[in-house]
Amino acid sequence: MLFTPPFEQGTLLRRYKRFLTDIRLADGSEVTIHCPNTGSMRNCLFEGEKVWFSTSDNPKRKYSRTWEQAQTDQGHIIGINTGRANQLAEDAIRDGIITELQGYSKLKREVKYGSENSRIDIFLSDDDTDESPKPHCYVEVKSCTLLEDDKGYFPDAVTTRGQKHLRELMEMVSLGHRAVLLFMVQHTGIESVQAAKHIDPDYANLLNQANKKGVEILAYCAEMSPNQASLIKSCPVRL
């Protein structure tokens, strides 16, 4: 995924009211930008460190700048904009990077499914004309950015929505389809992923249930810069 134009750089001052962030620009001026991350951003807020942002030319936006990436005090890069995770996943599937999700002729985004009225991030299927089509594949994408004690965790806050998604994936398996939970690791310091039982024990328990019932759990690490981002390798999921 190329960023055109490349992201601009600033310095993080503070994040507040969930969707707002103050940064200092290179000329010393301070501006407020939009924060596109609805999570707690636990261990992602490094005041005084570098951040990168994009700028929209949409005149209707109150805040034209969007926070995209952050740097930790160890120099790691974090993808702040969770909205980019789905595009990263789609690009990696189409480019053959995610080997486990190859062999499908159709890819759709945001398809309605499940008994709890959800939308699946990525829906994979074969042509309708196949005599023996493969089971449909439902892929739920989650952005992982929490690093604690040299371990990657998800989620960074209690997530009833994430719990619902796990139930929906298990339902798809029970109906004979393929279901995949795909962790997109948008933190260059994370080398493995596991459930944050200390933050959301219910999610951790559901993740174990989903694994036992046949939901496939994958994790892939992203390489990031102000110019581009892409998935480069799979990483272990600790269950």
Rank of each mutant, 00 (worst) to 15 (best):
S174H: 11
R178Y: 09
A157Q: 13
H187I: 13
D126G: 11
E90H: 08
E140M: 05
G75V: 15
S192A: 14
S174K: 11
L20T: 05
F123N: 03
R161L: 04
C137K: 02
T188Q: 00
K108F: 06
H136S: 06
C137M: 06
S230C: 15
E171F: 03
Q71P: 07
S115Q: 06
H198Y: 10
D57R: 14
L231A: 08
L101Y: 04
L12E: 01
H165I: 07
R14E: 11
L146E: 01
I199W: 13
P236M: 01
R109I: 03
P133T: 07
A92M: 05
H198G: 12
E223G: 02
H76G: 11
L101C: 12
L146K: 01
K134T: 02
T66Q: 09
Y16E: 04
E8P: 09
W52K: 07
L146D: 02
A210R: 10
L88N: 00
Y63D: 03
K164Y: 03
E68R: 07
S143N: 12
T11W: 14
L181I: 06
K233T: 14
F7Y: 15
N211K: 15
R178C: 13
R15P: 06
E216M: 14
E223N: 09
S225G: 09
C35N: 10
G176L: 08
S118C: 14
Q71T: 12
A89L: 07
R161Y: 11
F3M: 15
E100K: 11
G176N: 14
A70H: 02
N117H: 14
L175A: 11
A229I: 04
G79Q: 08
S192E: 07
S29Y: 09
I217V: 15
E47P: 06
Q74L: 03
C144K: 03
K17L: 07
S225D: 04
K108P: 10
N205R: 15
T66C: 08
R61L: 15
L20K: 13
G214I: 14
K151E: 12
K60R: 14
A85T: 03
T145E: 09
V31G: 00
T72K: 13
S225P: 01
F53K: 01
G10P: 00
I232P: 13
S54E: 09
S29L: 10
T21K: 03
W67I: 00
G189D: 12
P133F: 07
W52G: 09
L20H: 13
F3W: 15
G10Q: 01
S115W: 04
E68D: 12
L12C: 04
S29K: 10
Q209K: 13
C44Y: 03
T66W: 09
E191A: 05
L2V: 04
Y153P: 00
S105H: 14
L45T: 07
K60G: 04
E68K: 06
Q87E: 05
L20Q: 12
K62W: 09
K213N: 14
T32R: 00
S105I: 02
T99Y: 14
G214W: 04
D128S: 15
C221L: 12
V51Q: 03
V139P: 02
